[in-house]
Design a protein around this nucleic acid. Structure first.
Lengths: 395, 395
DNA sequence: AGGATTAATTTCCGCTGTCAATAAAAGAAG
DNA sequence: CTTCTTTTATTGACAGCGGAAATTAATCCT
């Protein structure tokens, strides 16, 4: 995270305070006693930790009039005051930037698309600045300040340093994006890999809440994977992890741009599906919309392509499950528009290839609008804001 | 870990003490200042933490006469007093138990093999008791007490509960091994999966020292994998992880006992190699020794089998590297006897299938005598002893 | 009005690790 | 041979965090 100006800071001085806040953020309204239990603290600690947070307006206590027990002093459930702070999340793709304005609870308030003429850093930065400007003026009407900007980019991103080390899609190398964006927008900036950002959103606000080991698999132009192990998102020693897209599922399969054959992505990625449907049907197939339409119209060749894609994805997920034994795998991404065409095959292939207890892993599909990518970026900004001065416990 | 008697406990009451001890254990002799830096503590904290450990004889300070700087007060490097305590590690296989007596530094002092008539829990427990008895009498001559027993078993093991949930090799289900072994031996017992145990040994005493993300891949009867992510061994939500053996590398490959085709194990496992060499040469091949001999004699068919095995292993490792981005992969196991026959293919296949920065992962081969499996078990016992009352930070 | 019951808070206390100052153990310099 | 310099280790005062137990608060029940 980078920031120049003296930005508003989060008044969670102690580990316990940060812990409690995160717990309440993820687990909805909680009484102090429940929060204490969940965070592994004493009630007294919660009371102390919570006071400055309430005073600063980040937490509120609302005696929930309904649903109260018949006996004893009624509880004052704590909840995060979403409207207290706003964040901007932006996802940069090859041809556009998707931006969202979210509140502290990562609820999307406003979303915007900005087309990109060229994906070079200069143009992206200009578009990003305009986008942020736009969203910040909108934010004025909401009565809260924008406290951070998260940017999600595909590829090798060093979140700690705030730099994009290498993004094949954008053809960037060693771009200090956080620093640049910070100087143009004046906001504290967090830069992270797009799939990891989405994983953070799921971990704090989605289907990964409360789980210490799970995976997010995204299906779309590429096949990506975000991993949470021991309660933390895996970044890998070299900043890259979760490359499920290039797991080989069939050495005799179609060639992949990565140089191998039969990668998941070469079978189930958008481009691969379009190509395969075209070859199978002999018809004109311009994009995944066309491919999908053909399959939905019942064209056998197209359906088979999706079935094979599902099997490839299922086998890729089984590989993750076999290696890491996650509690849950969340399948998501635009590719899920074809959900009905390959969900069964995913499940079957997973079941066949998952070994022993790994098969007990809960595989969920979670269709997700494209703006969720930008929401993931906002989630990283929220995370950075809350943990502003926290250190990672190395070791 | 299970223990009935009041056993000797480790005087590291505080987190810092445990931290410092572990640091010195892994990083050899260290001055207090170096230890403080490495453990992220103040020198004062090290002094305080270290005192009871020295008094109890677990640490010693030896002014290293040689190699001292020319100026200033000479340092008193701290080192672990290996001879202070002894541990027993045992690896249970289908037909024998390998046991080792190690010191606190996990140096093997004595090793023993005990044949097993049948792998049912009764027989194993009897053999284990005899083995422990034997090693404990040997231990008397070494002037230190045996403070723990570690047992390594393949399959699904719940270390926390001390039970073997399911071991296909031994055909065990839900055997409370720690409890049983504790009552027969009177020692505190730690039970863990064999590959994870080996991984712990590498993490604390081997090629994984100082790394927060690495993998151990074992090649032998099966192909196993132990993972360390965020500095902790991965156990998986359901107690199973690291099943690299059943990663599919060739859907058209030979069938595997797991029900799929072309698993790494079905190509590079001992049984697969023996079968394939037999088929390729038409000769009598009883075991891996025969297969190895043929290959070393230059029989083309046999050499090809090993080459294919190497490629399969390399691809499996690449999958791990792509998913987790480890800093290092340590290849080990009895199968490395064929190291010269497939090391090149492992490297080539890894290089071809590793994507982007994942290729920067350092792949090492580390031939390891079979008794190292038992040493891994001892390492888990040492770990349990040192962290006797520590809790895992869930979340 | 006075229990009964559950929630939250307060007060006090112990413990851990840091800070800054100090002691220790040498060689170097005069 | 004393004193200075340099580096390592220790000491003692101190601050902060979180916990235990007692206390207060808020409500319903009798």
């Amino acid at each position: 995270m980078h920031s120049t100006r003296r930005a508003e800071t989060f008044p969670a001085n102690t580990p316990a305070a940060s812990q409690v806040f995160t717990t309440v953020l993820s687990h909805g309204p909680l009484t102090r006693l429940e929060a204490a239990r969940r965070a592994g603290l004493s009630p007294a600690a919660v009371t102390k930790a919570v006071r400055p947070l309430i005073e600063a307006g980040y937490l509120t206590e609302d005696a929930d009039a309904e649903a109260r027990p018949t006996l004893g002093r009624p509880a004052n459930p704590l909840r995060v005051n979403g409207g207290r702070a706003l964040f901007i999340g932006a996802k940069v793709t090859g041809d556009e930037i998707i931006g969202v304005l979210t509140d502290l609870c990562c609820q999307v308030r406003i979303s915007r698309h900005v087309p990109l003429s060229a994906p070079d850093p200069r143009a992206v930065l200009a578009a990003l600045a305009a986008l942020v400007q736009d969203l910040m003026t909108e934010a004025h009407g909401l009565g809260a300040g924008v406290l951070g900007l998260g940017v999600a980019v595909s590829g090798d991103v060093d979140r700690g340093a705030g730099t994009v080390r290498y993004s094949p899609f954008l053809e960037w190398r060693d771009v200090p994006l956080a620093e640049l964006a910070c100087t143009t927008t004046g906001l504290p900036v967090t830069v992270d890999n797009d799939v990891r950002a989405l994983t953070v959103a799921e971990q704090w606000f989605g289907a990964g809440v409360g789980l210490s080991d799970f995976a997010v698999v995204t299906v779309g132009a590429g096949i990506g994977c975000g991993l949470v192990v021991h309660g933390r998102v895996v970044a890998g020693a070299h900043g890259v992890a979760g490359e499920i897209g290039h797991v080989t599922v069939d050495p005799a399969g179609p060639p992949c741009h990565c140089g191998n054959r039969g990668c998941v992505e070469a079978i189930a990625g958008d481009a691969a599906i379009v190509r395969q449907v075209r070859e199978a049907t002999g018809l004109t197939v311009a994009d995944t919309g066309d491919a999908l339409a053909l399959a939905h119209r019942g064209v056998a060749g197209a359906r088979e392509v999706y079935a094979r894609a599902g099997a490839a994805i299922g086998r890729g997920i089984a590989t993750v499950a076999n290696l890491l034994g996650p509690e849950r795998v969340i399948i998501s991404g635009e590719g899920l528009a074809a959900h009905d065409l390959f969900a069964e095959q995913i499940r079957d292939a997973f079941g066949a290839a998952a070994f022993g207890s790994a098969a007990r892993c809960d595989v969920q599909t979670r269709p997700l609008p494209f703006e969720q990518w930008a929401r993931g970026a906002a989630a990283t900004a929220i995370q950075s804001f809350i943990r502003a001065d926290e250190q990672r416990p190395g070791r």
